Structures are given as structure tokens and as C-alpha cells.
Amino acid sequence: MTKWAVGIIIAVLTLVGLVYYLHKENSYDFDESMKEYEIVQKWNLPNPLDEISGMVWMGNDRIACIQDEDGIIFIFDLNTSEIVAEYKFGGPGDYEGLTLLNDELWVAESNGKLFRVRDLNDPEKTQEFQTGFEYKNNIEGIAATEEGNILILPKDRNLNSTGDGLHDAIYLYDPVEDKLNKEPYLTINYDDEAFKVLPVTEPEDLIRPSDLKIHPNSGDIYVLGAQIPKLLILDNEGKIKKIYLLKPREFYQPEGICFSPSGRIFISNEAKGTDASILEVKLN
């Protein structure tokens, strides 16, 4: 066998292994009878948003999006299915969360930094805050509250914890005082009966959150999970009111969620062997 042929075989095996790795964590026998939602509409995203990681409603059928590599806010128009504007706010980084507070965009980096984008047209006015989280916590989502605070959701480790412990925690950050409350604002307990619907039992597989937002009408907290794709609806004490399992073929890498003021739900997928996308979802 020639070196050329061996090279082709190695390349093919590598590609097969990569595809398997990308899909194995979300591959399980999804029970169609447990599908309690419908997809209203889907938008395939252009290449700059392949790594879409967070989004927030901006009005006029436009959604602000970030991706986890570049410090750029993209404005995506649902009517034209196009990026209509780009605004640089920072350098390269691992940006994961996006929210809107008092008409200003806030961006979270996985290492715990928050960026207050005071003027989209002037990156020099962007302020940077270090909340007290670190890389080991791996911040995945943020959400503004009606009271003017910001909820922060770590993916890997809670504060003052060497591991996931027995719960996932959501924390409260006061942007006026630039102060993080290191005691959890609420906790999602792994022994909650609602988790029995999941086809796993290991704590690290139960949640693995990727984003969160607050419903504009009910005030419930919606937590998106990328591993075993799911949507958790929590009350203001962290009690799970409902878990919606999401079909892996439709939500192959769910990374962002946002609402319109009327309560329309949008969930984004990173590209994972196919186009990145935004899906409007109606829960049954």
C-alpha cells in the first residue's frame, strides 16, 4: 500500500472519528411521544455566526448575537435572514452570554469577565468588570432582571466548590455596585423529581447549562441545556416547574435563548456538521 493510500485512509478515519465525537454526547433514542413543542420557524445563519453562543431581542424583528471567538456583536434580521450590522466591543475571547439592561448590552466571557457595551458605535466606551468567577467556573449565560441586576450561570463549577456538588447555582451580580453575591441566588437540585424524565443519572449529565433568560410575562427562569438537549423552566426559588426534552436532530448544539417582549421563544444552535441556526419554538 502506498503512503498516499495510507494517508487517505488515516484522513477518512480521522473525519469519521471527529463526526462521532461531535455527535455522541447528544445521541440517544429520543422518544417522539415526549416532544412537547413545535418549531414555528427556522433561520439558517451565515458563517460568521457558526459559533453563536448568546443572543438577545433588540426589537423590530432583530436579534443581537455573539459568538465565542471574536468580540463582535452581530445584529441578525429575522425578516431578511441576514446580518445587518456588526459592532466590535473587544478582542478575541470566549464570549458566552448576552443580555440587555437599561438599553445597554452586557456580554459575559467564560472566565468571569463582564463587558458593558455603552455605545455600539464606540468600543472605547465599553467597560470591563471582573466578577470574581474564573475559568474553572466557565460562565455560560447571563440574564438581566427587572430590578436591574444580572443573573450569572456557571457551567462547570459553583463558587466555593471543588466540583458540581449536589446542585447547580445561579448567582446575582449588582452592576451599580459592581458586586457579586457569592451566595447562590437560587439552586437547581440534582435530586429534583423532574430529572427522572432524563435518560441519564450522572449529575454532570443532568444540566450542563448553556444559557438562561427570564420570561417577560411569567417571570420564570428558562435554563437551556446543551448536553441531552433540554429546556428547564424554574420558578423564582429554583424549583423545576417543567423540563422540555429537545430532539437532538433539531437542537444539535443549543447554546443561546432569548424572548421577544410578547414571549416568543428563540433558541440558537452552533454549527455542528451543519449550519448554525435560530429556531422559534412554541411550547405545548
Score class of each variant (00 low, 15 high):
210 S>H: 08
99 T>H: 01
167 H>F: 11
50 D>L: 06
124 E>F: 08
277 S>H: 09
197 V>I: 15
103 D>E: 15
174 D>E: 08
162 T>K: 07
44 N>V: 10
213 K>L: 04
16 V>P: 00
20 Y>H: 09
268 S>Q: 10
16 V>Q: 11
16 V>I: 15
165 G>S: 10
237 E>R: 13
134 E>T: 12
8 I>P: 01
55 M>T: 06
199 P>Q: 04
53 S>R: 05
284 N>G: 06
178 D>Y: 00
126 T>E: 12
32 E>S: 13
72 I>D: 10
7 G>F: 05
210 S>D: 05
253 Q>N: 08
179 K>W: 07
86 E>K: 15
283 L>I: 11
213 K>F: 02
221 I>V: 15
218 S>L: 10
167 H>G: 03
231 L>M: 10
26 N>F: 01
228 I>E: 02
80 T>F: 12
33 S>R: 13
240 I>R: 06
148 G>N: 07
101 L>H: 08
233 I>R: 12
150 I>Q: 00
193 E>P: 09
107 V>G: 06
234 L>G: 05
115 F>E: 00
90 G>A: 15
244 Y>L: 04
246 L>N: 10
204 E>R: 08
159 L>D: 11
26 N>S: 04
190 Y>P: 06
256 G>V: 07
132 G>Y: 02
97 G>Y: 00
148 G>C: 01
162 T>F: 04
220 D>W: 13
93 G>Y: 13
282 K>R: 14
92 P>G: 04
9 I>F: 04
23 H>W: 14
99 T>E: 00
102 N>P: 01
151 L>R: 00
207 I>K: 11
42 K>M: 12
62 R>T: 05
146 E>R: 11
23 H>K: 08
109 E>T: 02
25 E>W: 13
224 L>S: 14
8 I>H: 00
55 M>A: 05
213 K>W: 03
78 L>W: 04
200 V>M: 06
37 Y>H: 06
63 I>T: 07
6 V>I: 12
106 W>I: 02
211 D>C: 06
12 V>N: 05
39 I>L: 01
240 I>P: 12
243 I>Y: 09
229 P>W: 03
58 M>D: 07
208 R>T: 15
140 E>R: 11
79 N>F: 02
97 G>S: 01
176 V>W: 02
40 V>Y: 11
35 K>M: 10
179 K>Q: 03
159 L>V: 08
121 N>Q: 14
155 K>L: 14
